[in-house]
Design a protein around this nucleic acid. Structure first.
Lengths: 162, 162
DNA sequence: TATTGTTATACTCTATAACTATA
DNA sequence: TATAGTTATAGAGTATAACAATA
């Protein structure tokens, strides 16, 4: 019996060593994602503490640098941020002189975003930190596996909902 | 020239199709993790809306079921939750009659946690939903790749900090 | 003294409603 | 009417400090 019993995914015995039975949790994608996300973000915060950049701030800086003149709403939706929450984010970067908001000429409702020279300088610094940050994880898995991991994550993120 | 130029990781062109240049973001582990985490959690919320269980609540239920009599602090640290934040979490499960808190006999400071019959019944329902939830993503990647993904995530999570 | 559970508190992230000024 | 930016607000998740009861 017990022929085609299907999926198993038993406790992978990953970590903790608390002796506590986590049951199916270690085999669950969401649980593994949360643990990895936590570790990677921790490393991000440690790495970028020197220049006080949070992940979302860095993402905005990068997008604005590569796409000068975008409207706030465009940057926001490109990054999956609600435009209402984007306001304070853009404000924080503007206050620090990293990004400029200019009222658009042909549509005076919208703010066009531009990176400043100071923003570009910080972006250069950030790129090096980013490289070191990424490299720590890429080295753990090897470049090839690392690439496959990132690709798989995007594939899951891009799945049709429903 | 350009011989050993090292890491590249250019835009993977994953999604969005907004025409906006995201630069290095799609190649970044943290960015990919955030996108995948979001998608998987969205699916979790949709799936478990019927029984109104959040990820952390389910995790506690599972751990308490498999390890009857654990102290609050033990469950909390096993799941990477601060004991101070665990209080409301345990309370929410107790109010719903899924879990019981009994004062420990030999250490009257601590609460021992036990799953109730109602909790067990919900846990059974949850297991089926969990199976469906997981299967959606496992089917997208295939079981083998899915397993490798989860293993890689735990490996990153278990890396030495520093 | 140290630990367990607890309260209070604060900060971030995310989400919704409603306003304003433009279009 | 619809859209861009904004404000206010509320809910989670996570963090620290401080306290009472107990060890």
């Amino acid at each position: 019996m017990s022929a085609g019993r299907g999926r198993q995914r038993r406790a992978t015995g990953h970590a903790g060593a608390t002796g506590i039975d986590l049951g199916p949790l270690p085999g669950l994608l969401g649980y593994a994602l949360r643990r990895a996300q936590l570790a990677v973000y921790q490393d991000f915060f440690r790495t970028f503490d020197k220049i006080k950049l949070r992940p979302a701030q860095l993402a905005v800086l990068v997008v604005v640098e590569r796409n000068p003149g975008l409207k706030q709403a465009e940057v926001a939706t490109a990054l999956g941020i609600k435009r209402t929450n984007f306001v304070v984010l853009a404000h924080s970067l503007e206050r620090r002189g990293l990004v400029e908001r200019r009222a658009s000429a042909h549509d005076r409702r919208s703010n066009a975003l531009y990176i400043t020279d100071e923003g570009k300088a910080l972006s250069r610094k950030a790129r090096q930190m980013l490289e070191a940050h990424e490299q720590r994880f890429a080295a753990e898995l090897g470049e090839a596996e690392f690439g496959r991991l990132v690709a798989m994550l995007h594939r899951l993120a891009d799945m049709e909902a429903r």
